[in-house]
Design a binder for these strands. Sequence first.
DNA 1: TAGGCTAATGGCACTGAGTGACAGATGGCA
DNA 2: TGCCATCTGTCACTCAGTGCCATTAGCCTA
Lengths: 235, 235
Amino acid sequence: MDHGASRTSGTTAGTGGLATAPAGLRERKKERTREALIDAALELFWRKGYDATTIDEIVAAVDVSRRTFFRYFAGKEEVALARSNEVERSLVGALAERPSAEPPVVALRQATRAIMAALEGDPKRGSSEAYVRTRRLIEANPTLMAATLRHAMETERLMAAEIARRQGVDPHTDLRPALTVSCFNAVVRVAMDEWTERGAMHTSELAAAIDEAWRAMAGLIESGWLGSGWASDED
Amino acid sequence: MDHGASRTSGTTAGTGGLATAPAGLRERKKERTREALIDAALELFWRKGYDATTIDEIVAAVDVSRRTFFRYFAGKEEVALARSNEVERSLVGALAERPSAEPPVVALRQATRAIMAALEGDPKRGSSEAYVRTRRLIEANPTLMAATLRHAMETERLMAAEIARRQGVDPHTDLRPALTVSCFNAVVRVAMDEWTERGAMHTSELAAAIDEAWRAMAGLIESGWLGSGWASDED
DNA sequence: TAGGCTAATGGCACTGAGTGACAGATGGCA
DNA sequence: TGCCATCTGTCACTCAGTGCCATTAGCCTA
């Protein structure tokens, strides 16, 4: 299953940002400035904390003006989450590449596995270690956590649209695509919390935590926690 | 089922803030200032928008100093979400009052119904209309939406702890409480999105939307979207 | 009822985020 | 080479948020 995974990363994720000749010099320069700003920002955040780092310090490290920073990012939040948001958004692409014969939840799980495998193998930023450190940063900052959740919500919409497309249903009248994605992410989030509590050491442990959460999910259905006839009114 | 609901609101929610003799004059004065600030803020937000409203305008309307405002609230976000956060937190109390014979999901649904019924009947703030208007405000502002999601996440922890208690399991080793609550809220959130898209007219429609989401949830399980053997590895 | 204690308030000054406007620099292209 | 479009820097401004200290006002005891 790993083979398909690394192939996936190349076409959909672009987590490496391998500078595959992005047209003219101007574009390349912009890309470099953007990457430099993210690198400098993350380095400072990790070293002296998110709140303690000012934008002036970030731009000083890259030697661009404060004004320029705001032309690339809306604020500190955005530069801090740029990488992890990229990873998250790549899930939509990975989902689209799953064979349409797979049931929605299976496709979601496989897409997640593919992205995490790609993360693992990528030697550049977006790699496993960078992801773990960024995760800790988010976990420690209410503002970043809030922004992360909001971005996840937006990504959910895209994923729900994709599920609706591959299942051939109308997402405006059928709630199932939205429910599937929303609950799927709920499970992943629980697994992530568990992973964080255990120290968030490596992404391989995150994969294990997600699997464990899904097993517990099965147990939940069988253990009667849902109640009988829970879909209709039971009062 | 409504009878239990209104009783619930009195003991756990306190959504009315009926000024039940909060001790000394000093305390009462503080409470009044706090309420006045929230009222003034919401009024301004509704009239001229969240971003366009400055804290100076809020404090001018209540005639307190800017410095005092920040002794009550951490910022604009907090004053905007004070009421809806109160409603959300009351869910934890309502959940604790459900009979422990009820399966977790049933208890969660009934607690939600109780809170919504209490919202309906309450003639003061926290009433149905105020809730709807606040919801629209949140929906229109990315910052508020982010803060709301974060608060929901924290409330989830409390609810999971309560579920774990009533089921007699250890929340640190058993993921089921966290999964139950997380997925439950995921369903409610989907229903809320649907409700908002349809105009978010009245809380009674929200209750209907939640019921509809649960019906779709049942259809989801039966329609094979989960796949077979989805709890274990299927690759 | 006086007077001291404690806590809330107000005013001031300062840092930092974020934005609009305009001038200068630089890559793209004929 | 020189024009055009776009990116960048500088300046000035508003507003959020915080620390510090003096003042006011509720509370409690003698």
